[in-house]
Design a protein around this nucleic acid. Structure first.
Length: 273
DNA sequence: GTGACCACCTGGCCGC
DNA sequence: TGCGGCCAGGTGGTCA
């Protein structure tokens, strides 16, 4: 499932391939992916526009077409492929953007969870899905004081809080498990009992884990593989996630798998007490 | 404001 | 072999 590093990998790959291309036509085969406007408006607003650049905030991709931007969330299994227009449509390709040069950008999503919103570019940070998001771990405004203030009334598990994108954006199930392992925090510990030192460790380790994952192209795991021939290598660096019943890399205690708020959660019962 | 739960969706896996 | 049921999980909505 794409988290911040995977989305950044996709952003870089797409930027190298489709910037400055002009959209000639769009086919939408599964209309629910387009959320905030009708399919007709979606097509009308984007056709004949030139893709200026691709940005990212948290797990969202922002395709900037000048006056309007397309905000895309890949959710569980969304992927983009670039193919020639004469290639046949494959199963699970739900939206196809046709460029004037004969290439196409194809949105592929096995589970149809992904979303696209069309937003006036001037409103991206005022009125869009991005508006609600918290700071990315790299943001200097994500301080110990900020995080302490946001979690001091949270009686839920620290893992649940770190998955809340309105507090910190970019961490998903895989990386939260890794961050908590490096921070020696039990994923079920109540967020409002976390000390300042532990909060500092969470922030530092979030930056460390995400930077390393971005450098390695993200994580290729389970059903999710990246598009465009890009395969992440961070799965080789995982300490606990998917390591149930395997020895902890630090103390050799067997890694446990539990559920935290319905999410599969891996941790070392000795290192993360 | 907070927390718990559910829906969305399909492929893979497991047990019968 | 075929079938049914469960699981995976990010986000948004609903309800208490």
């Amino acid at each position: 499932m794409p988290e911040l590093p995977e989305v950044e990998t996709v952003r870089k790959a797409l930027s190298n391939l489709i910037i400055n291309k002009t959209i000639r036509d769009i086919d939408v085969f599964y209309t629910k992916i387009v959320r905030n406007v009708s399919v007709e408006e979606f097509k009308y607003s984007l056709e004949n526009r030139v893709l200026k650049r691709i940005d990212r905030y948290g797990k969202y991709l922002i395709f900037n077409f000048g006056e309007v931007s397309l905000i895309s969330h890949l959710r569980m299994e969304g992927k983009y492929f670039i193919k020639n227009a004469d290639m046949p449509k494959e199963k699970h390709e739900h939206i196809i953007f046709y460029f004037t040069d004969g290439d196409t950008l194809r949105y592929h999503d096995t589970r149809k969870f992904g979303t696209m919103d069309l937003i006036p570019t001037k409103d991206i940070y005022i009125d869009s899905p991005i508006t609600k998001l918290g700071f990315e771990p790299f943001n200097k405004e994500l301080t110990v004081a900020y995080l302490q203030k946001r979690i001091q009334k949270k009686g839920t598990a620290i893992k649940t809080v770190l998955l809340d994108q309105t507090i910190i954006t970019g961490l998903g199930n895989i990386y939260v498990d890794e961050v908590l392992f490096l921070s020696k925090l039990n994923p079920t510990k109540s967020a409002n009992t976390i000390t300042k030192i532990e909060i500092k460790a969470v922030i530092d380790n979030s930056i460390k884990v995400l930077n390393k994952a971005i450098k390695l192209g993200g994580t290729t795991i389970r059903s999710y593989t990246s598009s465009l021939g890009v395969t992440g290598r961070f799965q080789n660096e995982l300490n606990v996630h998917t390591k149930k019943d395997l020895p902890c890399p630090i103390c050799n205690t067997l890694i446990k798998k539990i559920k935290v708020n319905g999410r599969g959660t891996y941790y070392c019962p000795k290192c993360q007490q």
